[in-house]
Design a protein around this nucleic acid. Structure first.
Lengths: 348, 348
DNA sequence: GTTAGCACTCGATTCCCTTGAGTGCTAAAT
DNA sequence: ATTTAGCACTCAAGGGAATCGAGTGCTAAC
């Protein structure tokens, strides 16, 4: 068990290192206002903290640097809550008052806010489209041979895909089909669309169009190809600003990691209500092992929608990042909520 | 005027340097099969070529490096046409045979192809949406207070924007409005939409809806906000692979430059039929002055649509890049063409 | 005109020395 | 029993000096 004094010293060291990115020496600590002991005492405590695994040295005569265990202890027990500046808060509020009526827009804006306010890289995992519901389906002919299919969900999300119209299908058939589909599929969750199309609608359609199979096949290709949830990344170049990434190879590794959308999406998904923090080697992926990843989730009512995250060096401003993620995930959830339950202005 | 031998030597030096990124020495040149002179002779010629400004030394006893004037001469007179490998060609053809029916898709795919095949960064400037024509306008209500407006162009491009419905406007008004708009605006170029809305349609609409002004204002906000042509960037991280960018500051400068979409768009626009090459300081922007930018344009029929470009170090594989850009811009133009004039399969 | 030969240049690498920030330990002070 | 002052020690970083070698320019011979 750590003594009060050790707790204090550990906290001060980590705070200092997070700010300065330089190994912290005993003299520097002794000078702090909150510290009343001499550098020699500090040295003794530091030696103990090192032995306990909370601190490390970069070389035998260097100052101390927090270990991953140190950071873990810090975020669990030590760190003091961060008060966002008035400026930051109004910045966020402002961003959310002006015409935030589209999912994509909210998410992109949020990613941007996060990266701008932290100098880290923000990653936002979009919702599983599956959970939203079909509002309207439309097929708009572009030429005699091509058309664009448009799918609108209740969240205002629009998917579209152009396709060639098979010769055997007449425009009038197409129209009939769309009518039937809209009638039968309105309000159906996107995740169920596929199944429903294949079963219930099949018979119905057969009565009206001769070439159901072909039409079905095309429709499916047109609409259901990429419904995997999207990744929004903000401030990718912020990584370059961090002193721990002055070595270009690390940057390269991290970038190619971020481009692995599938893997990242998997890593991110945070199903809990809480904020989740992964420090250094707590991350499974090797390219991220000198990084920390902090994730929070946003939701619509009780439904988890997606995850917002910040990726930075292990020497991260945990406290600030957590405050920000909390504020922003709430703000996002609120916004989505307001689209459904609020007054005519869509404001709270 | 350069002698035959000088031309040969210059060519060999630049070819070598483009491949190796290392200053080229006289001995290395003398060893090449195509060179029958001794290193001493080469040295004399190199000294002359340096005096003429085509070569430079990095320091007084180093090998030679092409100057920007050298590169310029090389691309204008020296470089031999590059035969793309069978593999590369089939790779491109394959990419274009499978369901390329959306503008975005074609462009994104192309950007990817370019960056993958070259290890440079590709930038594609989308078409001015203005030049395309309105196919259909739709407003789909999402709730009592919100709706999504969708605009489809003849190129299969879909724009959409959610908005709040002003209280004063009834759903039935909305419907009427959309009908009128579709009737009157079908086939109108996007660039003319604005004007037309403001003039001709105004009176017509006034007869039918009470709150035209409000509706107009909302419609406009919903549909015409971001019609600037889009930028598609591929292989941004390829920059990190080039030895001339092992210095992180240069990378940072270049990245923040690329993010200036407006400026880049302006730089890129290539209104000629031909391929345009800007070497080093021929670029106005300082962050690009150790880069070369090669642009080509793609078109629909006789209408220039947009620009595709590759950005790399001045030591670029000009010859290969040019072949690739030629092939790809043609392939893109063809594809767009085929959407309009070809048979039911959309194939040539 | 071409080439061999040689002195010369200069970046890169290595080694050594110095500096200074920081430690650990011991002994004295509280 | 803590705390602190003092001192010897460690090691990274930075600054020459020495060495190496790739490459040049020039001269004289072919």
């Amino acid at each position: 068990m750590l003594t009060e004094r050790q707790l204090l010293i550990l906290q001060v060291i980590i705070d200092d290192f997070i700010e300065s990115a330089q190994p912290v020496g005993s003299r520097a600590i002794a000078k702090k206002d909150s510290i009343t002991y001499s550098s020699a005492t500090i040295r003794n405590e530091m030696a103990d903290l090192e032995e306990l695994g909370y601190l490390e040295k970069t070389h035998s005569s260097s100052g101390r640097v927090p270990s991953e265990k140190g950071y873990r202890f810090y975020v669990d027990h030590l760190m003091s809550p961060f008060d966002l500046s008035k400026a930051d808060i109004t910045f966020i509020q402002d961003a959310f008052t002006y015409q935030m009526l589209e999912f994509e827009r909210v998410v992109q804006q949020s990613a941007r806010i996060l990266s701008d306010l932290t100098n880290y890289t923000s990653i936002i995992l979009g919702p599983e489209v599956y959970e939203t519901k079909l509002k309207q389906l439309q097929i708009i002919p572009l030429s005699n041979y091509t058309a664009v299919a448009i799918l609108v969900t209740n969240t205002g999300h629009v998917e579209h895909r152009s396709f060639t119209i098979p010769v055997v299908i007449q425009p009038v058939d197409l129209e009939k089909m769309v009518n039937i589909l809209n009638e039968k599929l309105y309000g159906v969750a996107i995740i169920d669309l596929h199944r429903k199309l294949r079963t219930e609608i099949l018979e119905l359609l057969r009565k009206h169009t001769i070439e159901y199979d072909k039409a079905y096949q095309y429709l499916q290709a047109a609409l259901f190809e990429e419904q995997s949830s999207k990744l929004y990344v903000g401030g990718k170049t912020n990584i370059l600003m961090q002193p721990e990434f002055k070595d270009i190879d690390k940057v390269r590794a991290l970038y190619s990691m971020i481009e692995e959308e599938v893997e990242i999406a998997h890593l991110l998904r945070n199903d809990t209500e809480d904020i989740k923090i992964s420090i250094g080697h707590e991350n499974e992926v090797s390219a991220m092992q000198n990084c920390s990843l902090i994730t929070a989730s946003y939701s619509l009512g009780d439904d988890q929608m997606g995850t917002i995250a910040l990726l930075g060096p292990t020497r991260m401003e945990y406290s600030k990042v957590i405050s920000l993620l909390n504020l922003l995930s709430n703000r996002m959830s609120q916004t989505f909520q307001s689209w459904y339950y609020s007054g005519p202005d869509g404001k709270q």
